[in-house]
Amino acid sequence: MIDTDLLSRKGLVKELAQGIRSMETAHRPQGLLVSSGSEQMDRCLPSGGYAAGSLLELTCNPRQRTSGWGGLSLALKMARPWLNDGKYLVMVDSYRRLCAPSLVAMKIPLERLIVIRTDNASDWVWGLDQALRSPAVGALISPVTELDDRSARRLQLAVEQGGGLGIFLRDQVSAKRNPSWAEVQWQVQSVSNPSSSASSPYASPLKKPSVMMERWFDLELLRAPGRQSSRRVRLGIDAQGEWIECDERKSPQSAQHLASQLAIAAPGRRDLAAG
């Protein structure tokens, strides 16, 4: 009798969750999913890819707050599949730092790249809103520092209308302090090449054989619809700009149940932001 009650409750919760989910995604292009190109990453995502008209956040580990943690490279890699059908990539580069040779090496078509520079927060939100709203924009990459609740919601509605993918690069501290309407949130940590013995100290780094032809990241899925627990995956990008999948046995422990991570799950944070 207890089991039946439990099952019916579970079914009801599942049904309600599905109902909420369908209400939340009612304005998006239905059923359009784009694979990240990495099987391991897709397996972590409940729907097996990134949904059109959604926001994605890459947050850096607090230990790597200094620029150079590799978030932009990952974002470029994730954005690339969204440009295949003639759509455009919009990048926000207010500090005028983008380096064209690296974009070309990451196979980003420069003729379909629009770079926006903004001087203040209101122009930044407006620019992002317009770009995300445009059906011509396949993906947008922008760093995010401070974002209020209304602006975050505004950007979410814009991307739902445009049907592209918005990728935000955030500091973990800022991501926890400020609201977010991103559907998927990854925490990224740049790590040493697992095939090298880089962890052992060297007398001189220049005497070491070169291992910087590929870069590895530990990605922890902090938030995804329908996902109750955090998932971790170790992925690399090789010299040709392609994904390298790590041997599952070597990758960090997956499907961890971390009570602390539940504290920043989407519904709770939204309530917090709204209240």
Binding site: K107, M212, E214, D238, A239, G241
Partner: peptide, 18 residues
């Protein structure tokens, strides 16, 4: 415009300081 560099993606940084 996409001419892959002979020695790979990690030869040039994504951002250059002015």
């Amino acid at each position: 415009s996409v001419v892959p560099l002979s020695d790979g993606s990690w030869t040039r940084p994504t951002q250059l300081l002015i």
